[in-house]
């Protein structure tokens, strides 16, 4: 899948905004949002927040986990742990990309948050690469990776599933089950 499709899915996450206009509830297929009262915070999907922000009709309040102390704590935990630690959101990397790009002025310490998120991403990606390699070498048939987020899972596609398919193909040749145009049966 294209990363922008993952981002599209991530845009369904909710974020708090402070609108500067009044409007009744908007009814949408995915659920209703609002009502909007100027100055009062309200939860909306990120895609709506981005659009309102671009029209300068709201101020985005950053996600609770998006502050520099908690991110640095997470970073330290991620460094210490051999396993993947739990992330605040299943779409942490895409959410921070979107919000930090569009609402740079609303979020305090935006640049440091960006660096911190990127560090966490890099640590996790290198862990992922190591564990994928260990998994393939270990002759295991299944592996369990908790707390992996959508974008990270997508990053090993299609390489890992394809490689596993090929391994199965080579293995099943030994079982004599491989289909062939010569054996006459399919």
């Amino acid at each position: 899948m294209d990363p922008s499709k993952i981002e599209f899915l991530g845009e369904k996450q909710l974020v708090n905004i402070v609108p500067n206009f009044n409007l009744d509830i908007i009814y949408l297929i995915s659920g209703s949002v609002g009502p909007f009262r100027a100055g009062l915070p309200v939860k909306v999907p990120i895609w709506l927040a981005v659009s309102l922000k671009q029209k300068q009709k709201c101020r985005i309040i950053n996600q609770e986990w998006m502050n520099i102390e908690s991110l640095n704590d997470r970073k330290e935990m991620e460094k210490m742990s051999k396993l993947f630690t739990e992330m605040p959101s299943n779409h942490y990397i895409d959410e921070s990309q979107i919000l930090l790009n569009v609402a740079n002025d609303d979020i305090p310490d935006a640049d440091r948050i960006r660096t911190s998120v990127k560090d966490i991403w890099d640590i996790r990606m290198s862990k992922l690469r190591t564990s994928v390699d260990a998994f393939v070498k270990s002759e295991g048939v299944h592996a369990r990776l908790d707390h992996l987020t959508a974008m990270e899972i997508n990053s090993i596609r299609p390489l890992l599933p394809h490689a596993l398919d090929q391994m199965l193909r080579i293995q099943s040749a030994n079982m004599g089950e491989i289909n062939s145009q010569y054996s006459g049966k399919k």
């Binding site: 390699d133 393939v136 390489l159 490689a163 080579i170």
Partner: peptide
């Protein structure tokens, strides 16, 4: 294949 996978990746 197993040992070369790391290389390919």
């Amino acid at each position: 294949f197993r040992s070369r996978f790391r290389l390919v990746m």
